[in-house]
Design a protein around this nucleic acid. Structure first.
Length: 504
RNA sequence: CGGGCUGUGGCUCAGCCUGGUAGAGCGCUUCGUUCGGGACGAAGAGGUCGUGGGUUCGAAUCCCGCCAGCCCGACCA
């Protein structure tokens, strides 16, 4: 009965299957009866709430405010920006009716039949550029109305062919920032600022190192002039786009007619941006830090920082132990970690201690604290860290633990980032020739991020994507990638290396 | 939208070829023994066998339609 690892198969054996098992074992989410749509369970949603709250603080700190726009977009709005419309056309859910009629069947059952066909169908938003653009057009009259810095927390729907929990679902939760500016320079600066916010959030909150960079024209958001991305590497060495920030130029302003009277008394089009991250961050988090015993959560976003497990071997001392655990929890909750009160749960459920312990291992709680009669007598607690083995346990004086708990959490947070960074760096290589490139991504090879000199065309890029399933993840912003060289495919001069990888 | 596969208690699946009216493991409930620990034993609850039709005395099992899901391609946060 005792398995080596809590999750089978292990990451090495079958990474995609491991991922699915982890999502289930950690009780994060499940597939629903609606195709491609997931039920996010409390543990997974708690994670999202923390991500949401902490990002929201950063958005507010950079001058943005939240608003909410309709779920349904008039079909005609999507026809205004051709490139954008084409980009999303194949994955739109369309609302065509507005009422149902109950029709009695011969067998006595009732069938609901849609009636009330709509003159103009609505599209369930795949993203909200068009409808927010329409609002912006009403709100902006003068350069004095700019910039307009709006964010929306919402659900969107993209009828994906192949859904996977958190990574690609038909409906998903996200935030979409939409801003309008007087000048291109300001809009570009905004795009870059939010790109940095994402980079920092991934690094400091999710403990995931990313490579910030720009997408190539092929990979750009439909309708954007420039798409910035933060690319993370997860444990199967594939890349995942964790956040994007788009400079939209005047394309959407033109489509939505966002005009204003400028300082020089001329009518001008606004310069807009949009930027977003989604529940995909949770999938990224799982794949970046998870191990063969389940999820490993960075303390900053964990729904619970600490779970206290009362050890109650004897009925006589049971109440005493529970009281002591509650008292410890209260003491801990008075402390804070990065400005948030410590989240501490006392798991009083009357189930076998071992399975209870394993449940929290699988859920990835950063610290587990056991306290039983012996600990109370000794004034100690048993502390287990999720970033160490499931059996690793340290007995420490209770007062010492209380005094060091914040430090311990930060140590776990830092350790996860260090581990993820080491993993990424170990699988990132600068290569120079086509042969090296092919060997790097050959079947059976470990793969990873290949840093290549590139001066090829969009068609060259597409061919590589088709033939080798490898794409340019980004053209890094960092000067660390800058150096003179020759394109590995065309031999043309190149001033910077780009990141090639397989991706999610 | 093309190619392959699958739909059986909460979960994973067996049974289908060779029709006779439903099984296992896990999970769940109760009791007992354990218990700093993903325990053991016993008893028990739980199933229109995706759906509609056909063949048959009789269908989870054979035939046809439909629906849903999974995997492989094109698309994607």
């Amino acid at each position: 009965m005792s398995a080596q690892t809590a999750i089978t198969p292990t990451r090495d054996k079958d990474f995609p299957e491991w991922y699915q098992q982890v999502v289930r074992a950690a009780d994060l989410a499940e597939n629903s009866e609606v195709r491609g749509c997931m039920v996010i369970k409390p543990w997974g949603y708690g994670l999202w709430e923390n991500i949401q709250r902490q990002l929201d603080v950063k958005f507010k700190a950079t001058g943005h405010v939240n608003a909410y726009f309709p779920l349904l977009i008039p079909l005609s709005y999507l026809e205004k920006e051709a490139e954008h419309a084409e980009g999303f056309a194949t994955e739109c859910a369309v609302v065509t009716h507005h009422r149902l009629e109950a029709v009695k069947q011969p067998d006595g059952s009732t069938k609901m039949v849609p009636t009330g066909k709509l003159e103009e169908p609505f599209v369930i938003r795949p993203t909200s550029e068009t409808i927010i653009g329409a609002a912006f057009a009403r709100w902006v009259q003068s350069y004095r109305d700019l910039p307009l810095l709006i964010n929306q927390w919402a659900n969107v729907m993209r009828w994906e062919m192949r859904p996977r929990l958190f990574l690609r679902t038909a409906e998903f939760l996200w935030q979409e920032g939409h801003t309008a500016h007087e000048t291109a320079e300001e809009a570009i600066a905004e795009t870059q600022q939010m790109h940095r916010v994402y980079e920092e959030f991934l690094r400091d909150h999710l403990a995931i190192p990313v490579i910030p960079g720009a997408k190539t024209a092929n990979e750009r958001f439909p309708g954007a002039l420039d798409t910035l991305t933060v690319e993370a590497m997860v444990q199967d060495r594939k890349a995942i786009q964790a956040g994007t920030s788009h400079y939209l130029g005047q394309n959407f302003a033109k489509a939505a007619n966002i005009q204003f009277l400028g300082r020089d008394n001329t009518r001008q089009l606004a310069h807009t941006t949009s930027w977003g991250v989604s529940t995909r961050l949770i999938g990224t988090l799982i794949m970046a830090h998870g191990d063969d015993d389940g999820v490993v959560l960075p303390p900053r976003v964990a729904p619970q920082h600490i779970v206290i497990l009362p050890v109650t071997p004897k009925e006589e001392t049971r109440q005493e132990v529970l009281d002591a655990c509650e008292a410890l929890a209260s003491t801990l909750r008075a402390q804070s970690f990065h400005g948030e009160a410590l989240r501490v749960l006392v798991d009083k459920r009357d189930i076998a201690g071992g399975s209870k312990n394993w449940e929290w291992i699988k859920k990835g709680v950063p610290l587990r604290v056991e306290m039983g009669p012996r600990d109370i007598a000794n004034g100690s607690v048993a502390v287990c860290r999720r970033d160490q083995g499931p059996k690793a346990k340290e007995f420490v004086p209770k007062e010492d633990f209380i005094g060091s708990v914040v430090e311990r959490l930060q140590d776990i947070q830092d350790g996860l980032l260090a581990r993820a960074t080491a993993m990424r760096d170990a699988n990132m290589k600068a290569l120079d020739t086509l042969e090296e490139f092919q060997a790097f991504f050959a079947e059976g090879a470990p793969g990873g991020f290949a840093l290549m000199h590139w001066a090829g065309s969009g068609d060259d890029e597409e061919r590589l994507a088709k033939e080798m399933k490898v794409t340019i993840r980004c053209i890094p912003i960092s000067e660390a990638f800058a150096e003179e060289g020759k394109c590995f495919l065309t031999g043309k001069p190149s001033a910077k290396r780009v990141v090639f990888a397989r991706s999610y």
